[in-house]
Protein backbone atom coordinates (compact mmCIF):
# COMPACT_ATOMS: atom_id res chain seq x y z
CA UNK A 1 0.00 0.00 0.00
CA UNK A 2 2.84 2.38 0.93
CA UNK A 3 4.65 1.36 -2.23
CA UNK A 4 1.61 2.16 -4.33
CA UNK A 5 1.02 5.45 -2.52
CA UNK A 6 4.62 6.57 -2.90
CA UNK A 7 4.84 5.56 -6.54
CA UNK A 8 1.61 7.26 -7.45
CA UNK A 9 2.61 10.35 -5.45
CA UNK A 10 5.92 10.45 -7.30
CA UNK A 11 4.18 10.14 -10.64
CA UNK A 12 1.69 12.87 -9.73
CA UNK A 13 4.53 15.18 -8.71
CA UNK A 14 6.44 14.37 -11.89
CA UNK A 15 3.39 14.94 -14.08
CA UNK A 16 2.50 18.18 -12.31
CA UNK A 17 6.11 19.36 -12.54
CA UNK A 18 6.35 18.56 -16.22
CA UNK A 19 2.96 20.18 -16.83
CA UNK A 20 4.00 23.35 -15.07
CA UNK A 21 7.30 23.43 -16.96
CA UNK A 22 5.51 22.98 -20.28
CA UNK A 23 3.06 25.73 -19.33
CA UNK A 24 5.97 27.98 -18.43
CA UNK A 25 7.70 27.32 -21.76
CA UNK A 26 4.51 27.98 -23.74
CA UNK A 27 3.79 31.15 -21.76
CA UNK A 28 7.36 32.34 -22.23
CA UNK A 29 7.25 31.76 -25.98
CA UNK A 30 3.89 33.50 -26.33
CA UNK A 31 5.11 36.42 -24.27
CA UNK A 32 8.22 36.83 -26.42
CA UNK A 33 6.13 36.65 -29.61
CA UNK A 34 3.68 39.21 -28.25
CA UNK A 35 6.54 41.55 -27.45
CA UNK A 36 7.87 41.19 -30.99
CA UNK A 37 4.58 42.11 -32.70
CA UNK A 38 4.36 45.77 -31.70
CA UNK A 39 7.99 46.24 -32.67
CA UNK A 40 7.25 44.92 -36.17
CA UNK A 41 4.11 46.99 -36.56
CA UNK A 42 5.67 50.21 -35.34
CA UNK A 43 6.54 52.75 -38.03
CA UNK A 44 9.76 51.39 -39.52
CA UNK A 45 13.00 53.02 -38.51
CA UNK A 46 14.08 53.37 -42.12
CA UNK A 47 11.01 54.36 -44.12
CA UNK A 48 12.95 54.46 -47.38
CA UNK A 49 14.04 50.85 -46.94
CA UNK A 50 10.54 49.84 -45.82
CA UNK A 51 9.08 51.51 -48.91
CA UNK A 52 11.57 49.63 -51.09
CA UNK A 53 10.48 46.38 -49.43
CA UNK A 54 6.85 47.28 -50.08
CA UNK A 55 7.65 47.77 -53.78
CA UNK A 56 9.35 44.38 -53.82
CA UNK A 57 6.24 42.77 -52.35
CA UNK A 58 4.22 44.39 -55.14
CA UNK A 59 6.66 43.02 -57.74
CA UNK A 60 7.62 46.50 -58.84
CA UNK A 61 10.69 46.60 -61.08
CA UNK A 62 12.15 49.82 -62.49
CA UNK A 63 11.48 50.20 -66.20
CA UNK A 64 14.29 49.16 -68.48
CA UNK A 65 14.84 49.70 -72.18
CA UNK A 66 14.14 52.71 -74.32
CA UNK A 67 10.87 54.59 -74.21
CA UNK A 68 10.20 53.62 -77.82
CA UNK A 69 10.70 49.93 -77.04
CA UNK A 70 8.49 50.14 -73.96
CA UNK A 71 5.66 51.75 -75.89
CA UNK A 72 6.03 49.60 -78.99
CA UNK A 73 5.69 46.30 -77.13
CA UNK A 74 2.26 45.09 -78.29
CA UNK A 75 2.30 42.20 -75.84
CA UNK A 76 2.04 44.57 -72.88
CA UNK A 77 -1.48 44.81 -71.47
CA UNK A 78 -1.89 48.18 -69.82
CA UNK A 79 -4.31 48.53 -66.95
CA UNK A 80 -7.55 50.28 -68.00
CA UNK A 81 -8.79 53.33 -66.18
CA UNK A 82 -11.33 52.89 -63.45
CA UNK A 83 -14.65 54.69 -63.57
CA UNK A 84 -14.27 58.11 -61.96
CA UNK A 85 -16.66 61.08 -61.92
CA UNK A 86 -13.90 63.31 -63.31
CA UNK A 87 -13.14 61.15 -66.36
CA UNK A 88 -13.27 63.28 -69.49
CA UNK A 89 -13.82 66.44 -67.47
CA UNK A 90 -11.50 69.31 -66.62
CA UNK A 91 -9.22 68.41 -63.75
CA UNK A 92 -9.91 70.60 -60.69
CA UNK A 93 -7.37 73.39 -60.53
CA UNK A 94 -5.13 73.76 -57.45
CA UNK A 95 -2.12 75.65 -56.25
CA UNK A 96 -0.19 74.04 -53.41
CA UNK A 97 3.15 74.64 -51.75
CA UNK A 98 6.10 72.33 -52.17
CA UNK A 99 8.87 71.75 -49.65
CA UNK A 100 10.70 75.00 -50.42
CA UNK A 101 7.43 76.87 -49.80
CA UNK A 102 7.06 77.87 -53.46
CA UNK A 103 3.59 77.24 -54.90
CA UNK A 104 2.94 74.97 -57.86
CA UNK A 105 -0.35 75.08 -59.75
CA UNK A 106 -1.85 72.50 -62.05
CA UNK A 107 -2.38 75.13 -64.76
CA UNK A 108 1.31 76.06 -64.73
CA UNK A 109 2.35 72.41 -64.87
CA UNK A 110 0.00 71.71 -67.80
CA UNK A 111 1.75 74.38 -69.86
CA UNK A 112 4.70 71.96 -70.06
CA UNK A 113 2.60 68.94 -71.06
CA UNK A 114 0.50 66.16 -69.49
CA UNK A 115 0.52 65.66 -65.73
CA UNK A 116 0.61 62.53 -63.61
CA UNK A 117 -1.05 63.43 -60.33
CA UNK A 118 -0.50 61.13 -57.38
CA UNK A 119 -2.30 61.28 -54.05
CA UNK A 120 -0.39 59.38 -51.40
CA UNK A 121 -1.20 58.85 -47.73
CA UNK A 122 1.86 60.67 -46.44
CA UNK A 123 5.46 59.92 -45.62
CA UNK A 124 4.79 57.81 -42.53
CA UNK A 125 4.38 54.17 -43.55
CA UNK A 126 5.81 51.90 -46.22
CA UNK A 127 2.87 51.57 -48.63
CA UNK A 128 1.80 55.16 -47.91
CA UNK A 129 4.83 56.51 -49.74
CA UNK A 130 6.21 53.61 -51.82
CA UNK A 131 4.61 54.81 -55.08
CA UNK A 132 6.74 57.94 -54.90
CA UNK A 133 9.88 55.82 -54.77
CA UNK A 134 8.69 53.87 -57.82
CA UNK A 135 7.98 57.07 -59.74
CA UNK A 136 11.34 58.48 -58.75
CA UNK A 137 13.14 55.48 -60.23
CA UNK A 138 11.39 55.98 -63.60
CA UNK A 139 11.16 59.76 -63.55
CA UNK A 140 13.50 60.27 -66.50
CA UNK A 141 11.25 58.20 -68.76
CA UNK A 142 8.25 60.29 -67.73
CA UNK A 143 10.23 63.44 -68.49
CA UNK A 144 11.24 62.14 -71.89
CA UNK A 145 7.52 62.01 -72.72
CA UNK A 146 7.16 65.62 -71.57
CA UNK A 147 5.09 64.63 -68.54
CA UNK A 148 5.22 66.28 -65.13
CA UNK A 149 4.75 64.20 -62.00
CA UNK A 150 3.14 65.89 -59.00
CA UNK A 151 2.58 64.17 -55.65
CA UNK A 152 0.13 65.41 -53.04
CA UNK A 153 -0.58 64.40 -49.45
CA UNK A 154 -1.89 65.93 -46.27
CA UNK A 155 1.60 66.01 -44.75
CA UNK A 156 2.61 69.48 -43.60
CA UNK A 157 5.57 70.94 -45.52
CA UNK A 158 7.81 70.69 -42.45
CA UNK A 159 7.17 66.95 -42.15
CA UNK A 160 7.98 66.30 -45.82
CA UNK A 161 11.07 68.45 -45.51
CA UNK A 162 12.20 66.44 -42.49
CA UNK A 163 11.69 63.15 -44.38
CA UNK A 164 13.68 64.53 -47.30
CA UNK A 165 16.48 65.43 -44.90
CA UNK A 166 16.41 61.87 -43.55
CA UNK A 167 16.00 59.88 -46.75
CA UNK A 168 16.67 62.27 -49.63
CA UNK A 169 14.30 64.28 -51.79
CA UNK A 170 12.32 63.05 -54.78
CA UNK A 171 13.06 64.41 -58.25
CA UNK A 172 9.54 65.78 -58.65
CA UNK A 173 7.45 68.24 -56.67
CA UNK A 174 5.83 66.91 -53.50
CA UNK A 175 2.99 69.18 -52.47
CA UNK A 176 1.25 69.77 -49.20
CA UNK A 177 -2.55 69.70 -48.91
CA UNK A 178 -2.97 69.77 -45.12
CA UNK A 179 -6.74 70.15 -45.18
CA UNK A 180 -7.11 67.49 -47.94
CA UNK A 181 -9.16 70.01 -49.92
CA UNK A 182 -7.60 69.06 -53.25
CA UNK A 183 -7.78 65.35 -52.41
CA UNK A 184 -11.52 65.74 -51.76
CA UNK A 185 -11.98 67.36 -55.21
CA UNK A 186 -10.33 64.34 -56.82
CA UNK A 187 -12.36 61.87 -54.76
CA UNK A 188 -9.45 60.45 -52.81
CA UNK A 189 -10.56 61.96 -49.53
CA UNK A 190 -13.97 61.99 -47.91
CA UNK A 191 -14.46 64.16 -44.85
CA UNK A 192 -16.16 62.47 -41.93
CA UNK A 193 -19.88 63.03 -41.62
CA UNK A 194 -19.56 63.16 -37.84
CA UNK A 195 -18.16 66.28 -36.27
CA UNK A 196 -14.80 65.81 -34.60
CA UNK A 197 -13.98 62.63 -36.52
CA UNK A 198 -11.23 62.37 -39.09
CA UNK A 199 -12.01 61.60 -42.71
CA UNK A 200 -11.21 58.71 -45.03
CA UNK A 201 -8.65 58.66 -47.79
CA UNK A 202 -7.42 56.55 -50.70
CA UNK A 203 -4.39 56.23 -52.86
CA UNK A 204 -5.12 57.94 -56.17
CA UNK A 205 -3.34 58.28 -59.50
CA UNK A 206 -4.56 60.46 -62.37
CA UNK A 207 -3.33 61.14 -65.88
CA UNK A 208 -4.31 64.62 -67.04
CA UNK A 209 -3.80 65.50 -70.69
CA UNK A 210 -2.21 68.77 -71.75
CA UNK A 211 -5.69 70.26 -72.25
CA UNK A 212 -6.39 69.69 -68.57
CA UNK A 213 -8.80 66.75 -68.92
CA UNK A 214 -8.70 63.69 -66.70
CA UNK A 215 -8.13 60.78 -69.08
CA UNK A 216 -7.17 57.99 -66.71
CA UNK A 217 -7.81 57.38 -63.02
CA UNK A 218 -7.04 54.72 -60.45
CA UNK A 219 -8.01 54.74 -56.81
CA UNK A 220 -7.76 52.15 -54.11
CA UNK A 221 -6.28 51.02 -50.85
CA UNK A 222 -2.88 50.32 -52.36
CA UNK A 223 -0.41 52.42 -54.31
CA UNK A 224 -0.47 52.17 -58.11
CA UNK A 225 3.01 51.08 -59.13
CA UNK A 226 2.49 50.06 -62.75
CA UNK A 227 4.41 53.01 -64.23
CA UNK A 228 4.38 51.50 -67.69
CA UNK A 229 0.60 51.85 -67.86
CA UNK A 230 0.96 55.54 -67.00
CA UNK A 231 3.46 55.96 -69.84
CA UNK A 232 1.06 54.28 -72.28
CA UNK A 233 -1.75 56.59 -71.18
CA UNK A 234 0.45 59.68 -71.42
CA UNK A 235 1.55 58.63 -74.89
CA UNK A 236 -2.11 58.28 -75.93
CA UNK A 237 -2.80 61.85 -74.85
CA UNK A 238 -0.01 63.18 -77.03
CA UNK A 239 -1.13 61.29 -80.12
CA UNK A 240 -4.92 61.20 -80.07
CA UNK A 241 -6.03 64.56 -78.73
Amino acid sequence: MTLQNNTSRRWILLAAGLGLMAGGIVMGLRSSLKQKQPTEALPPEDLARAAANDLDRRNYRPLSGTLEALLADASYKSIPTQAHPLLGLAAPEFSLSQTDNTPISLAESLKKGPVVLVFYYGYHCDHCVSQLFALNKDIEIFRSLGATVLAISGDPIEETRERFRMYGAFDFPVLSDPSNTVAAKYGTYAPSVKAGEDGNLMHGTFVIDKNGHVVWANRGDGPFTENRTLLVEIKKTTTTR
Partner: peptide, 15 residues
Protein backbone atom coordinates in the same frame (compact mmCIF):
# COMPACT_ATOMS: atom_id res chain seq x y z
CA UNK B 1 -15.11 52.23 -54.53
CA UNK B 2 -14.93 54.52 -51.59
CA UNK B 3 -12.17 56.01 -49.50
CA UNK B 4 -10.78 53.17 -47.46
CA UNK B 5 -8.83 54.44 -44.56
CA UNK B 6 -9.54 56.69 -41.68
CA UNK B 7 -6.94 59.24 -40.77
CA UNK B 8 -6.71 58.63 -37.04
CA UNK B 9 -4.25 61.44 -36.63
CA UNK B 10 -1.34 62.87 -38.59
CA UNK B 11 1.06 60.08 -39.30
CA UNK B 12 -1.34 57.24 -38.58
CA UNK B 13 -3.68 55.48 -40.96
CA UNK B 14 -6.37 53.09 -39.82
CA UNK B 15 -7.55 50.45 -42.23
Amino acid sequence: LAPCCRIVSRGLVER
